[in-house]
C-alpha cells in the first residue's frame, strides 16, 4: 500500500486541482496507478518525461510533477521519440486516449511500435471521444450509439494490443480500471521494459458513452468491466463466440528485442570509431 502523502508529493495539487475530468471518469484512477507504479520503481521525478496528446487523457500531464508536455492531437509519440532520442537516459511515458493514439495518431503508433523505441505508452480506452462531447472513436464497439453514429456504430473497432504486437512492439498488456491494482502491475512492468511497451486500460466514460448507451452510472460501468473481464489464460480455452463483447486482460507479449535508441547509439559509435565517410565536416 502507498501512503496518501507519498502519492500527493507527485501531484501539482496545490496549484492545479480540481481536475477537469467529469465525476465518475476513470482517468483519475489511472493517474493514481501511474504514480503508484513510479513510487514502487523509485524513479526520480527529474528523469521522467511525461508526454500526452489532446483529449481528456491529454490533460493528465498538467497535474503531475514530472517534465511534462501537452502536445498536439495525435502527435505525442513523435514528440516523445524526439525526447528519447536526444536523452536516452530519460524514462519517457506517453499517455493517450483511444482517439488520440489510434485515429489521428494511428500512423505514429504503428511506427513507434515498429521501431521498438523505449517508450511506455498508457492507452486509456473509453470507447469514445469524451472531450469533444461523445463522437465515435476507432474503438467504439459495433452497434453503440454516439453523437456522430446516432443510429448505432457500423465501423469495426481496432484491437490496440494486437495492433501494437503485429507492428513490432515488444510489450503489450490490457487492464481495466476496475482491477486497478492488477493494472498498476502491468504499468510497472511496462515502464521497466526496454522497448515499446503498451498498456491498454479499459476505462469508463459515464457522462458520454454510458449516458448515450444506457450503461448506467460509473459504478454500473465498473461492475460491467468486472463481469466482462476474462484473463488471457482462460480466454485461450474459450470459443470466439463466447469471447464476443468480453475484455481479455493480461500480458499479451513480453519479449526482449533490439531497442531503437540504444541500437542507434551503438551504430553511431561505430561510425565515430572510424568507419564513417571521409567527407564528414
Amino acid at each position: 500500500m502507498h501512503e496518501l502523502s507519498d502519492v500527493y508529493s507527485y501531484l501539482r495539487w496545490k496549484k492545479r486541482f480540481p481536475a477537469v475530468w467529469c465525476p465518475g471518469c476513470g482517468i483519475g484512477s489511472i493517474m493514481g496507478a501511474i504514480i503508484r507504479a513510479i513510487i514502487d520503481l523509485e524513479i526520480p521525478k527529474d528523469d521522467i518525461a511525461f508526454i500526452s496528446g489532446i483529449g481528456c487523457t491529454g490533460r493528465m500531464p498538467v497535474y503531475l510533477d514530472f517534465n511534462t508536455m501537452h502536445t498536439t492531437h495525435g502527435r505525442a509519440l513523435p514528440f516523445a521519440t524526439g525526447i528519447k532520442m536526444h536523452r536516452p537516459e530519460m524514462k519517457v511515458i506517453v499517455v493517450s486516449g483511444d482517439g488520440d493514439s489510434l485515429a489521428i495518431g494511428g500512423n505514429h503508433f504503428i511506427h513507434a511500435a515498429r521501431r521498438n523505441i523505449d517508450i511506455t505508452m498508457i492507452l486509456v480506452n473509453n470507447s469514445i471521444y469524451g472531450m469533444t462531447g461523445g463522437q465515435v472513436a476507432p474503438t467504439t464497439p459495433i452497434g453503440k450509439v454516439t453523437h456522430t453514429m446516432p443510429y448505432g456504430n457500423y465501423e469495426p473497432p481496432f484491437n490496440p494490443v494486437e495492433l501494437a504486437v503485429s507492428a513490432g512492439g515488444s510489450f503489450a498488456a490490457r487492464g481495466t480500471v476496475f482491477s486497478i491494482l492488477q493494472t498498476t502491475g502491468y504499468i510497472k512492468k511496462a515502464i521497466k521494459h526496454p522497448g515499446f511497451a503498451l498498456v491498454e486500460i479499459i476505462s469508463q466514460c459515464p457522462v458520454q458513452y454510458g449516458r448515450m448507451n444506457n450503461l448506467g452510472s460509473a459504478r454500473d460501468m465498473l461492475l460491467m468491466q468486472k463481469k466482462n473481464s476474462v484473463p488471457i489464460k482462460k480466454a485461450k480455452e474459450m470459443s470466439e463466440e463466447d469471447l464476443d463483447g468480453k475484455i481479455i486482460t493480461g500480458i499479451f507479449k513480453e519479449e526482449i528485442k533490439t531497442e531503437y535508441s540504444s541500437a542507434y547509439r551503438n551504430f553511431a559509435k561505430e561510425i565515430r570509431d572510424g568507419t564513417g565517410r571521409e567527407d564528414s565536416p
Partner: peptide, 16 residues
C-alpha cells in the same frame, strides 16, 4: 514516417 512526425520529433528533441 511523415513530415508531421518529423516536426514533432524535432520539437520534442528541442524540449530535451
Amino acid at each position: 514516417e511523415d513530415e508531421i512526425a518529423s516536426i514533432a520529433a524535432i520539437i520534442g528533441a528541442s524540449a530535451a
